[in-house]
Design a protein around this nucleic acid. Structure first.
Lengths: 199, 199
DNA sequence: CACACAATCGGACCTTGGTCCGTTTAGTAA
DNA sequence: TTACTAAACGGACCAAGGTCCGATTGTGTG
């Protein structure tokens, strides 16, 4: 039962009203602060609304769900990450061979996870992961790299599998419960990529 | 007036009281029926309790959480699956080469998912997946097969990755949203195994 | 059988994510 | 400035998972 993740329609010809913009900014700012102060999982939507001086209805009208709020808080970092992939320096950006770009992509995403795993976990809560914009971007990026390196493979299936390794839930489990150090996860990713794309 | 203090007997094999056993059976039976009738995600815990003629407290005392109830309903099928792995016919059971056993394992688990994906999804809800007994069993099984075939690999990481492909959430997404047929997932699994364990 | 007590029962209660809808307000045109 | 309307507001409300604790009952013991 996947839910639509679409935010309220933003029409190009009707700009956001001033109070709406102000409340959106207040909510984002408050949420980021509360998440940082007390941990994502210890902050309820009611608290965010109250601290931001906004009604609960407004909060949900703007962001739709808790997962979407988490995604919104992450959006700047996500955007800069995507920017580095599209136009940044190799090996993460264009120019390096596909296998090296894939390795770099995983390392960079693991880095992002290291800093914001709880936020990413909240953002992926429920079935929200697969329908989200970042996931779609990552999937497409990986599929293109895989096809470039090996046109014969089933890039869609392989991309999903590789991305599954980078899910926030698995990451947190391996880090916190199994206590694997980040370097091991990075090495595991690299080994994985080299299995999928042998030289 | 004072009696010698009897320590409460805490026996590992303390038998279940008759009413407890009766209620447990009633709940399991009712839950299985309701899940089958209306779909797992459309049945609330209150309904299960009411239909079973049991208080909500009793329901949660017995099963702890919705995810655990789903796991309990699945337990027979899980047990027979594990039995087939441990003592069944090859290639799922012992006797076949590791790579073939791994392929058979994935195919069998995909089969289980095809029939009960919604139940498995409920069973894995939240972080429940990684700590569950079936997951631990699957992980161990895969790790042993990987080590047998290639003692040099990082079996723990690879096992988690392979299992991630068989998660209920990804399965449902690929089947329902991306509309991939079961055969494609099965072929994808086999290709994956052959990448991880090249002949 | 009567008793004691621990295990169990069950529903009131709490929390929290999410919805609804009557009220308020920003933007606009006259 | 005033009037009008679409958009936004906000808090009461709902559903559902999960907890608590006083009442109840099964079971071993004398």
């Amino acid at each position: 039962m996947l839910k639509s993740v679409d935010l309220p329609q933003i029409r190009a010809d009707s700009p956001e009203r001033a109070d709406a913009a102000r409340n959106r900014a207040r909510v984002l700012c408050t949420a980021e602060r509360l998440f940082a102060e007390r941990g994502v999982s210890c902050v309820s939507m009611d608290e965010v609304a109250r601290e931001a001086g906004v009604g609960k209805g407004t909060l949900f009208r703007r962001f739709g769900s808790r997962a979407a709020l988490a995604r919104a808080v992450l959006s700047e970092r996500e955007a800069s990450f995507q920017e580095r992939i599209i136009r940044g320096e190799p090996p993460l950006g264009p120019g390096a061979p596909p296998r090296e770009r894939l390795v770099a992509f995983g390392h960079a995403l693991l880095e992002l996870l290291s800093g914001h795993a709880d936020l990413l976990l909240a953002a992926e809560h429920g079935g929200a992961r697969f329908g989200s914009a970042p996931y779609a971007f990552y999937r497409l990026h990986i599929e293109l790299l895989l096809r470039e390196a090996d046109p014969g493979c089933d890039a869609e299936i392989l991309a999903e599998t590789l991305l599954a390794f980078l899910g926030a839930d698995l990451f947190l489990y391996l880090r916190k419960v199994r206590e694997m150090p980040p370097e091991r996860l990075a090495a595991g990713w690299e080994a994985l990529v080299r299995l999928v794309l042998p030289s």
